[in-house]
Write a protein that binds this DNA or RNA. Structure first.
Lengths: 191, 191
DNA sequence: CGCGACGTTGATTTGCCTCAACGATTGTGG
DNA sequence: CCACAATCGTTGAGGCAAATCAACGTCGCG
């Protein structure tokens, strides 16, 4: 069940069988169906979510009934609102299942205890945060230096399966493009 | 000399006097003048830089002789290329002093040893990385939902001193705007 | 003093959004 | 199981925010 999580951790730090067992005690597994919310705007974010299967999105509601998606997570990705999680203030964003999703939760209020018991996990999170930050900085570079069309092709080149998996309007939001424009790009591409 | 760093760490984790002394052993202090490079494209990034005084910028060179700044750091900010630092591959970006700058370096290859000696520091970095990632995600939101003019006013509202401190064309690059357009926004504002 | 770096201002261009109307699917209640 | 409504994607017309281009002003520095 949690094998995907253990494997992911072992890609970055060593983890013994006993440590695995300690970790299990601090983790809760949950299942939600499509369109359910893991976190709703206004709630204080309680934990860090690791997707075991399915797909979730994190987004802000914008004035004028819009949505701005800033992060997707599929199998073996973490997703949360670090702002709310760390400050313990109400969240400004939503995390929602895009498909039927199964995920593991690591709750904020037991996290320090877990890290004290298995220090390697603190290192693990530091490392994946470094990677996530590097990716976010790279994303900002691409947003500013590429056109909408280049961004679309770049992203679908990197994640060809993923672009088929989510509705086009969500992809559009994530890429900062109008859904109509994605439609036009795709039409253009047909030789 | 390193008081700024100690204070910064204590904002997030406890740090004893002895731990301070251990940390000092792993830190190197350096001075560079304006326009000097802390990291040049193609080099492998060797460490994490904490600005003691002065100001640095991190940027990518873009095709067609352009520059895309993705991060600034002034006093009490960290700056590095996490991508290169973690992968140990040549960097795709540059880190350069915008002013005469004094900074502390924590080298990659002693970092694990330091964290083993003072585990609180691993936690400290995890926490500031969470904050940095949250800030980067928020920045992406603003890039997509605000106009260039709104972004300029938003940023200069948050950092009124900073916008006076760096050349306008660097600010423009960071905000993803043309320098000419910033000029026009400023002209408009004079009542 | 003269050159180069930086900022300003106006004219022109363009990438992409907005709006609107129309197909295609999906799903839901009668 | 079908009808009908949402929801989602497509296509085209028109508009606008901001880039680009170009020319000129100004400051600091070798």
């Amino acid at each position: 069940m949690l094998q995907g999580l253990f494997d992911h951790i072992r890609r970055f730090v060593p983890l013994s069988g006993e440590e695995e067992q300690v970790l299990v005690q601090y983790i809760e597994i949950r299942d939600v169906k499509k369109k359910a919310f893991l976190l709703k705007e206004g709630q204080v974010c309680q934990g860090n979510y690791f997707i075991l299967s399915g797909c979730c999105r994190a987004y802000f509601e914008t004035e004028r009934d819009g949505e701005q998606i800033y992060h997707f997570a599929i199998e073996n990705w973490w997703i949360t609102d670090y702002m709310s999680l760390e400050s313990r203030k109400p969240s400004a964003c939503n995390i929602q299942a895009v498909e039927h999703t199964s995920y593991a939760v690591l709750y904020r209020d037991v996290q320090d205890e877990l890290f004290a018991a298995v220090p390697q996990l603190e290192k693990y999170f530091r490392i994946i945060l470094e990677k996530a930050l590097a990716a976010a900085q790279l994303r900002i570079k691409y947003i500013f230096t590429q056109t909408a069309e280049q961004r679309y092709h770049h992203f679908s080149g990197l994640f060809p399966d993923f672009v088929q998996r989510v509705p086009q309007y969500m992809l559009a939001s994530y890429l900062g493009v109008s859904p109509e424009f994605i439609s036009k790009i795709r039409a253009k591409k047909k030789v």
